[in-house]
Design a binder for these strands. Sequence first.
DNA 1: CGCTAATGTAGACGTCGTACACATTGTCTT
DNA 2: AAGACAATGTGTACGACGTCTACATTAGCG
Lengths: 218, 218
Amino acid sequence: MTTIGIPPGANIGGRDTYRHGDLSRALVEAGVELARAGGPAAVALRAATRRAGVSPNAAYRHFADRRALVEAVCSASQGRVAEAIEAEQALVADATDPLAAARLRFRAVGTGYLHFALAEPGLFQTAFTASTDLESATSGSRAGTSGRTPFQLLTDALDRLVAVGALPAERRPGAEFLAWSAVHGLAMLLLTGPLRALGPEQAEGLIRRVVDMVEQGL
Amino acid sequence: MTTIGIPPGANIGGRDTYRHGDLSRALVEAGVELARAGGPAAVALRAATRRAGVSPNAAYRHFADRRALVEAVCSASQGRVAEAIEAEQALVADATDPLAAARLRFRAVGTGYLHFALAEPGLFQTAFTASTDLESATSGSRAGTSGRTPFQLLTDALDRLVAVGALPAERRPGAEFLAWSAVHGLAMLLLTGPLRALGPEQAEGLIRRVVDMVEQGL
DNA sequence: CGCTAATGTAGACGTCGTACACATTGTCTT
DNA sequence: AAGACAATGTGTACGACGTCTACATTAGCG
């Protein structure tokens, strides 16, 4: 009640102004750190505001509720996945044979996806366990540096396979969901499933075999 | 402080004895109901004890913590999945050609798994999103009526494929993980992923195609 | 310079998990 | 049969969480 505002000497948090400046971004960044350490369940409004040096309710000026913050963190995490895929594709970009190049580019989508899952399990689960729908899977807020979301990178690679003749056009429709299923399922088995304790080299072997299976079975 | 024990007339919860009788089972059953309605996150100790007509702390006589209760609910849910797979296999049990029978039996593992996921999304996610390791994937507490866990039903079907000559023996090792990856990944896409809003008939088409891909690509 | 909307704070409520102390009761030993 | 002991359930309490309502501060615009 009798709050005399801000005590002149004691500044709030690590801040000297009443306004934060870019709280929305700070909250998402804090949320990403929380997600990295503890997965989607660890993304808490209070923890994020604490990290941003702000009172808990300040978050409600920028996010409708916790779900909205998690959504934003999810988008940011998908951006990281997209960057991981792009990095993996960059490693194989110098193939001269266009058919082989398209195949390698397609495989890089899967291996990049899975390598990211192993390297950043908390972020990965936040990116794809938190519910997403199709329209948001192509939203710009989830894109990497190239401006494409993980889902779009996959469809691009499949389109290229068709263009180059490596995939019959009649098998193209829906193929993204088949490929995504296999790769995403392996990620889940490796992260939270029965293959959690697998060593890196055995995981790598499974990754290769799953991508083989997809290439073979599409 | 001055609790005179149980007031003579007012009985606790819906109970007339101080002891519950089979609280452990009652808590798991309550947990299953919670999981069915709201997935693994909805499995709360307090909610389960409330349903069982018991004080919150009574749960700690039977489960070390919330994780332990969720684990138990997870095992129970996996038992339901096993039953769903067995039911799907029973539908195709009357094939006379042993090779065709083995193939149908194998496919029934995947379709049963996915049909259960669509029919009971909350239970399905509780069964497989809550972390599991390999040794517990073969534990009896997760088995269906046949005494086999979903994982064992899958390996059984693969072994039969090899025995019948439908799968080269050198491709057998690890094949369970490839098949599981594809099927589990599709389940995730359909439940919490971008395919959440898909209609039943389109989902059914994807299920068939994913199982095709596995059969083709193993 | 003052109004208004945007932004942050304070306090409160109900939920959750869980630790600690205590009450009740079945069982086993003497 | 009586009393000790372990198993089981209750009560109270604490801190964390999400979120509601009211209030304080400030930027920007007329």
